[in-house]
Every structure is written in C-alpha cells, then in structure tokens.
C-alpha cells in the first residue's frame, strides 16, 4: 500500500472532474460519429433509426473505392520502403560506439517529427514542381516518395528501441560460435528485431494512411487519397456516408494499433 503521506495527484481536488472532462472530449465526438454512421436518415445530426444504408452507399461509391485503393497502395509502398531505410538507420545508430554527432544524427533522422508538416509539404510541392518540369513525370511516385520520407521516423523509433533493449552479448555469442558478421545478423539480430520491424511497419502504414496536409499539397489532379477525398466531400453536402467511411477507417486503425501494442508487449 502507498503511504498516505506520499503525494498522489489522484487525491487533488478536481482531479476526477478534469479526467472525466478529457475522456468525454476525446470519446463522445467519436462515439457520436460512429453512432450516426448507422442513421437511416440523410442527416448527421437528426437520428431517424438504425440502418446499414450509408455503408452500402459508400461501398457502391466508385470514388471512395478508387481513393481507398490509392491510399492503400501509397501507404503499403511507403511503409515498406520507409521501414527498410529505418531499419538500416537504426542499426547504424545503435551498433556502434557512441561518437560525437550521434545526437545530431538522431535529430536529422527524426526531422519530420519536428519540422511543421505544412513547411515540409510546401517544400516538397516546390521541389516536385521543378522535378516535374525536368522529367515530365506526373505519376503517383511523388506521393509515394513524400510519404516514405515522413514515415521514416515513425518506423525508426520502435526499431531503435528494440535494438537498444537487445542484449549485445547475443551477437557476441554468435560470433564466438563461428558466425560471420553477416550470419550473426541473419541468424540472431534480424530474428530478434522482427517485432520492432513489424511495429515500425504498421506505425508507418497508419501515419501514411491518414496524412492530409502533405498529400493535399503534393498530389496532382485525380490523385486524391481517401482522407483528401473526404475533406473535399465535407465542402459539399454532408451525409452520414462520411461517418460510415470514417468509422471503417477508425476500425482499421484500431486493429493495427492493437496489433502494434501486442507486438510491443511481446518484446518484454
């Protein structure tokens, strides 16, 4: 038992109220959004009974299907490329003696977490405009490259955490048992690193999937992703269709984050 004299924030006046308020603000809007996705009527504010109608409408909406596929393609490729780069970066920054400038390199890798997204977005917009003139290429590649770039730190952090917690004597033991550096990596480091890599991959995937700012700035005509399409819809008539898409989106995110949580728990 905690002694009654130790400081406990839980016993301060108003703690319960503030906590409750935070949870209400966080979850009531989301709960409302999900509830109205099942509305039988065309309003997002007046309840007219339960129905799957808007889910069916969304499923039959060619644009939603098209933008969803595009989102998944971009997120999948960006997550895989970013995780590969992040894995190499994490190995290079942990499997070495600490040297001057290592903190600078951490900052360098994590730059997308610190630079405002709108700045990165505009920078990419201008840079890609120049590249487009030079090459004439206007495909999906720009979005994929942009997403890869800002996904790297999200993939990097869990992989680095996993590497730092890994017992270095395991790799030493492998070397002692006649494993060359490459075999040590393949047989010991990589298998133990997998949970971190998967976690990084999923995090990068989710981050890419719901990006709006950079996508909005970088995309060419007809390259809407699901989030930018939804944003566009909000400017016109709003129906519970948007609630239905959001709810599915939410479900996918919850599934991925839950998997991420369990993979992280397995490491310890």
């Amino acid at each position: 038992m905690v002694s009654s004299r130790t400081f406990s924030v839980k016993r301060q006046t108003g703690f319960g109220t503030i906590a409750l308020l935070c949870f209400v603000l966080l979850y009531v809007p989301i709960a409302t959004l999900v509830a109205y996705s099942f509305n039988a009527g065309p309003s997002i504010a007046i309840w007219e009974g339960f129905s799957w109608r808007w889910y069916i409408a969304a499923w039959n909406n060619q644009q939603i299907v098209e933008t969803s596929v595009r989102s998944f393609v971009i997120a999948s490729i960006a997550a895989v490329v970013a995780t590969t780069a992040a894995t190499m970066a994490a190995l290079a920054t942990t499997r070495t003696r600490p040297y001057r400038g290592l903190n600078f390199i951490y900052g360098f890798i994590n730059q997308p977490l610190m630079v405002p997204e709108i700045v990165t977005g505009i920078a990419l917009l201008i840079f890609f405009a120049i590249v487009k003139i030079w090459t004439g290429y206007t495909g999906l590649g720009y979005l994929i490259v942009a997403h890869t770039a800002f996904c790297i730190p999200f993939a990097y952090l869990p992989i680095r955490a996993r590497l730092e917690n890994m017992d270095l004597t395991l790799e030493r033991a492998a070397a002692d048992l006649y494993a060359t550096p490459w075999m040590t990596f393949r047989k010991v480091t990589l298998p133990l690193l997998w949970p971190g890599i998967i976690a990084g991959l999923m995090l990068a995937f989710v981050v890419s999937l719901d990006d709006v700012v950079i996508t909005e700035l970088v995309k060419s005509g007809g390259q809407d992703t699901l989030p930018t399409y939804m944003l566009g819809q909000l400017r016109r008539v709003v129906t519970p269709e948007i609630n239905a898409i959001s709810s599915v989106f939410l479900l996918i995110s919850i599934v991925i984050v839950t998997l991420f949580f369990f993979l992280n728990r397995k490491q310890t």
Binding site: D167, T169, L170, R172, A173, A174, D176, V188, P191, L192
Partner: peptide, 12 residues
C-alpha cells in the same frame, strides 16, 4: 568458445 556470465542463450 565462451560461456557467458548471463549465458547469452538465443531466445528465439
């Protein structure tokens, strides 16, 4: 070959 203080067995 070495027997390590913390054994360093491969956990996987």
């Amino acid at each position: 070959n070495t027997v390590f203080q913390n054994y360093a067995l491969f956990p996987h």
